[in-house]
Design a binder for these strands. Structure first.
Ligand code: FES
Ligand code: FES
Lengths: 131, 131
DNA sequence: CCTAAATAGTACCAATTCAGTACAGTATTA
DNA sequence: TAATACTGTACTGAATTGGTACTATTTAGG
């Protein structure tokens, strides 16, 4: 199947939940709101944080909040945060791994076009659109 | 990672190879042309055949050929042939499985928009474009 | 009619990836 | 200083994927 990770799906749910957060919202509360298990939320937040999509605040009254306005955060951002660079195949420029057939392959480089088209599509939908 | 199966990648290579085939081209020859192992090509062809993307001809002088002009077959077609319906999440309409959180989920149905955008993007690139 | 070429269907296995969990550590506030 | 909540890392069982094997069926040609 051609699909995103379940975790990416959850991540969008989390992001949408954070839209309604004025102050920092702790993982525990996000878990309650969304029905996603607490440990899973916890894991997700780390990825979202590293990608700069949310801000964190430790200690009592700590928690997470969106790092940018909801209409500036795209689905592409979330996918990249959770799954790494978007590379439909290993032949694509920014892929982490390398294609074994690259040397004698007939479609060399052509996937870049496809990849770009998909990324563009994913950049057009924002967290605000998902609310 | 957000990516298509390796087999889908191979499938495009196979399809591109078939563009230059006037008569039916056997799996074995496709394997030689592309460098993809024969058994793998064999498996692929079954999927492509079931999806109606290629025609087959058995017996001596048999083989495969494209079922439509190269500029009418899209990347979306190939992905669907190899991986089944394109459903970025299980919350998407035409998905085969069902989302566990559906009942109380805040982004219910919103993924349909994303899915549609991606499919549209994938339909814009054809086999001819990959040649 | 027989044989070789080639597809068609099914089932299997090893390796990877994924989803979910656990736990010890650190920062912050009251 | 105690309670809260994030941070980092690492582990596991389950699912998926990539690749292979084998048998059956169809077709062309001698
Ligand atoms: S299959 Fe990777 S370069 Fe062509
Ligand atoms: S996560 Fe599937 S319906 Fe929302």
């Amino acid at each position: 199947m051609f699909k995103v990770n379940k975790l990416t799906d959850y991540a969008t749910v989390v992001m949408v939940d954070l839209v309604s957060a004025d102050l920092a919202r702790p993982s525990q509360k996000i878990a309650n709101n969304t029905g996603i298990p607490y440990p899973t939320v916890n894991k997700l937040m780390k990825d979202l944080l590293h990608a700069g999509l949310v801000r964190s605040h430790r200690g009592i009254n700590g928690g997470y909040s969106l790092a940018s306005p909801a209409n500036k955060i795209t689905i592409a951002d979330i996918i990249q945060a959770v799954e790494g660079p978007i590379a439909l195949t290993s032949c694509v420029n920014n892929s982490l791994d390398k294609c074994t057939y690259e040397d004698f392959c007939a479609v060399q480089g052509r996937w870049n076009r496809v990849n770009k088209a998909v990324v563009t599509a994913l950049k057009k939908v924002t967290v605000a659109d998902m609310t």
